[in-house]
Computed example of a mutant assay.
Amino acid sequence: MRSDGSALNLRRWWRSTGFAWAGILYSYNSQANFRIEVWAGVLALIAAAFLRAPLAPIALACALVLSLELVNTAVEAVVDLASPELHPLAKVAKDAAAGAVLVASAGALVVAAVVLLPPLWKVAGGG
């Protein structure tokens, strides 16, 4: 089905949202790392709420990691489709996409440390 070109078409938006959820569910059901990252994010958000720490930096860091994991899954699928046999450039594409997830995950850990450790230290009686 082709788009009518209108960004305000509710049917088009609903259909696109369905495709997006299908991709998220596929990734959750097929990718162990995505499941781990989802639940790590949930725990980080719960910790932030419990500690009354700012939620926005934690939520944004989680969204970045999960988004890049979805892109990584898409890159892997396209590379596997285009190059079923081993090829050096296929490896580069997959490794670079995985590297993006790793960089975002490291950044998310830094955000978690900066945002969550000070209030956690106070709760633990250290400050």
Score class of each variant (00 low, 15 high):
120 L>S: 15
87 H>T: 13
61 A>F: 08
119 P>V: 06
122 K>S: 14
97 A>N: 00
71 V>I: 03
87 H>G: 09
94 K>I: 01
33 N>G: 06
20 A>W: 15
82 A>D: 06
53 A>F: 11
36 I>C: 02
6 S>L: 12
10 L>K: 02
92 V>A: 04
119 P>Y: 05
36 I>H: 12
9 N>C: 11
2 R>P: 10
59 A>V: 08
122 K>I: 10
38 V>W: 02
90 A>I: 03
116 L>I: 05
75 V>I: 15
46 I>Q: 07
60 L>V: 13
112 A>P: 06
79 V>K: 00
9 N>G: 07
80 D>W: 09
125 G>T: 06
106 A>E: 05
83 S>I: 09
53 A>V: 08
45 L>M: 15
116 L>R: 01
104 A>H: 01
50 F>A: 12
99 G>T: 02
76 E>W: 06
70 L>C: 03
66 L>R: 06
117 L>T: 08
47 A>T: 13
48 A>R: 05
76 E>P: 04
52 R>V: 10
108 A>T: 01
41 G>V: 00
76 E>M: 09
13 W>T: 11
75 V>K: 02
32 A>K: 12
83 S>A: 15
37 E>C: 02
69 E>G: 01
48 A>T: 03
122 K>P: 01
66 L>E: 09
58 I>C: 03
25 L>E: 11
69 E>R: 15
3 S>W: 15
63 A>R: 07
106 A>G: 10
50 F>E: 01
112 A>R: 00
116 L>F: 02
81 L>R: 09
11 R>M: 08
64 L>N: 07
14 W>I: 13
112 A>W: 07
105 S>C: 09
108 A>G: 04
18 G>I: 06
45 L>K: 05
123 V>D: 08
124 A>P: 04
56 A>I: 13
27 S>Y: 02
122 K>R: 15
64 L>C: 08
23 G>I: 00
110 V>K: 12
45 L>N: 04
45 L>F: 12
85 E>Q: 14
2 R>C: 08
28 Y>M: 05
118 P>D: 10
6 S>M: 11
49 A>F: 13
71 V>D: 00
25 L>W: 15
107 G>L: 10
99 G>R: 01
46 I>N: 05
50 F>V: 14
10 L>F: 06
28 Y>F: 10
10 L>E: 04
113 A>F: 11
120 L>E: 06
62 C>W: 02
107 G>H: 09
79 V>E: 09
76 E>H: 14
18 G>D: 12
100 A>D: 03
120 L>V: 07
15 R>Y: 13
43 L>M: 08
17 T>P: 00
12 R>K: 13
116 L>V: 04
66 L>P: 10
84 P>N: 11
